[in-house]
Simulated assay, not measured.
Amino acid sequence: MMVLRRANRNDLKELQSLYIESIEGLGKLNYTDEQLSAWKSSVNNRERWTEAINNQHFLIAQINKKIVGFGSLENGSYIDFLYVSKNHSRMGVASRIFERLEKAALKLDQTELESDVSLTAEPFFKSKGFQTVRENKNIIQGIEITNLRMKKKLK
């Protein structure tokens, strides 16, 4: 049975491990090894992770007390994180997290959601009613990584 709960600082290490596993396992469909390495490097920014856990609506999905996915809502309308274990992909984990984040945005009277999503995550976000607004070219450690700004009208 899947349980959703708020994240706390004690979850940091397990969240970071799942982040790396998800990028390695799912990101390889759309990105080179060099791009994946650059993307994963953001795991080292402990301050950003701690700030997100403390200040965002940060949810964790657990099965048998193991974290299998997580997502966060920043400033009530921006989905900052949404990652799932490669072993739990396409099992409804991301959908459950997304539904809770969307409900939180609606409670805050938000009119839209937005996110910068990987090429790998684009089909998921499209299935939830998001539309691509623009393509972003990000430079991380000198490596160009493309992602997409996507938005969804809520009202």
Rank of each mutant, 00 (worst) to 15 (best):
M1A: 10
L4T: 06
D11A: 10
L18G: 15
Y19T: 01
I20L: 07
E21S: 12
S22G: 08
G25D: 06
G25I: 08
G27I: 01
N30V: 10
E34Q: 14
A38P: 02
V43D: 07
N45F: 11
N45Q: 06
R46S: 10
N54H: 12
H57F: 15
I60E: 04
Q62Y: 05
I63H: 13
N64M: 00
N64L: 08
I67C: 03
G69D: 09
L73E: 05
N75Y: 13
S77N: 12
Y78V: 11
I79F: 04
D80K: 05
F81N: 07
L82K: 11
V84R: 02
V84S: 01
N87M: 07
S89L: 09
R90Q: 14
S95M: 08
F98S: 11
R100Y: 07
R100A: 15
R100S: 15
E102F: 06
E102S: 11
A104N: 11
Q110A: 01
Q110V: 06
T111G: 04
D116Q: 13
L119A: 15
A121T: 10
E122R: 15
E122P: 03
P123I: 04
S127I: 15
K128W: 14
G129K: 08
G129W: 13
T132K: 13
N138D: 10
Q141C: 10
E144C: 13
T146F: 10
N147R: 01
M150F: 07
M150N: 05
K151G: 03
K153T: 09
K155C: 02
